[in-house]
């Protein structure tokens, strides 16, 4: 019992540290990536290739003045960044990043919590982030913040329906909510093959849920300054940023888990490993590491995909955004549910 608790604690600390380290790396990837796409140099002064730039930013965030404006709500205003950060940080708990690891005769499941309601957990906690956004906008007592928060929450709840409907496809296919089970079921065939429409709908809805371009209307700077976090500065502002990037990482991980086999090995990776002389047999350390590597590579690809899209597409107009969510994604999602259930009934798949 005590040992189990200790193992869980170690897993929690390792995963949280990895997630929080991802944030500065992502900031760097985003800035260098945008520079690469727009044929600029990007940050290249602090450290080699500008790699230390996010560290410098973080230090600056900590030492900046952190004012609470006169008109802001005294305690809801500082609470909002935390409310936005917490759900984003703990959603990852249900995602399996590997199968099992044999460690001195003890089998460790490479997942923080193998919840039998994993999908529901992620959807539930992922959507709690709206409260942070809404409270931030309302408590700032600023017109831009209020409008940005209203827009943002309307957008997020609209796309949450599409997100929820698209998830029904994989649930129908695998008959389980547990993400670990879903990954195990994808041993022979990745989910994308049987659920391509669910994947597309989920991808688009994930962009909107993360408030990323082309759906970053809440921060349309020409009309709303910085949207719901206009009044925030210093570490509080950094928390909204962290929440956005953590959300992005979790969504990428979820996409690879549901549709790209999660930690199932990338085809060809076994031969590379054999060529390198890594022993691969069930429950070996080499296999566990390769599984974690596969998961990380898939997730990294989707993270880069998010950055890539951001610097490639222009922003939607707000009415186009709402129309796209309500008139295209939701009917498509319902159609996908009907077709999937029919296909299962007639045993086509």
């Amino acid at each position: 019992m005590f040992l189990d608790l200790l193992i869980t604690a170690v897993k929690v600390v390792v995963v949280m540290s990895a997630l929080l380290t991802m944030v500065p790396i992502l900031v760097w990837v985003e800035r260098r990536g945008s520079a690469f796409i727009q044929d600029r140099l990007g940050p290249n002064r602090v450290g080699p290739l500008g790699l230390l730039q996010p560290v410098a930013d973080a230090v600056k965030f900590i030492f900046k003045e952190d004012p609470i404006p006169f008109h802001a709500h005294p305690w809801l205003f500082p609470l909002a960044p935390l409310l936005s950060f917490l759900p984003a940080a703990i959603t990852f708990a249900a995602i399996p990043f590997g199968d099992t690891l044999d460690f001195f005769g003890k089998t460790i499941v490479l997942q923080i919590a193998d919840l039998n309601i994993g999908i529901l957990y992620i959807v539930a906690f992922g959507s709690l982030g709206i409260y942070g956004v809404l409270i931030a906008g309302w408590s700032s007592n600023n017109k831009y913040s209020t409008l940005g928060a209203l827009r943002s929450s309307a957008q997020m709840i609209s796309y949450e329906i599409a997100l929820g409907i698209s998830l029904i496809g994989p649930i129908l296919m695998y008959g389980t909510f547990s993400l670990r089970q879903i990954v195990l079921e994808q041993h022979h065939l990745w989910g994308i093959v049987t659920q391509p429409f669910a994947f597309l709908i989920f991808l688009v809805a994930a962009f909107a849920e993360c408030n990323r371009l082309p759906f970053d209307l809440p921060e349309g700077e020409a009309e709303l300054v910085a949207g719901y976090h206009t009044e925030y500065g210093s570490m509080k502002f950094a928390f909204f940023f962290m929440a956005e990037y953590l959300h992005l990482v979790t969504m990428s991980a979820l996409i690879s888990t549901l549709f790209f086999g999660g930690w199932q090995l990338i085809p060809g990776l076994t031969s590379v490993a054999e060529w390198c002389g890594i022993a691969i047999f069930p429950t070996s350390l080499g296999l566990s590491l390769l599984q974690v590597l596969s998961f990380c590579l898939k997730t990294a690809f989707f993270i880069w995909f998010f950055v890539w899209i951001r610097w490639t597409f222009p922003r939607f107009r707000y009415d186009q955004l709402m129309a796209f969510g309500w008139k295209i994604l939701i009917p498509l999602g319902l159609l996908n549910v009907l077709v999937t259930s029919l296909a299962l009934y007639f045993k086509w798949i």
Binding site: V12, M16, A89, I90, F239
Partner: peptide, 18 residues
């Protein structure tokens, strides 16, 4: 328990940094 621990850890980091 694991979810609770994750929450606690995230909460500590959040409040600590603020």
């Amino acid at each position: 328990m694991a979810v609770l621990m994750m929450f606690g850890f995230a909460f500590l980091i959040g409040v600590g940094m603020l």
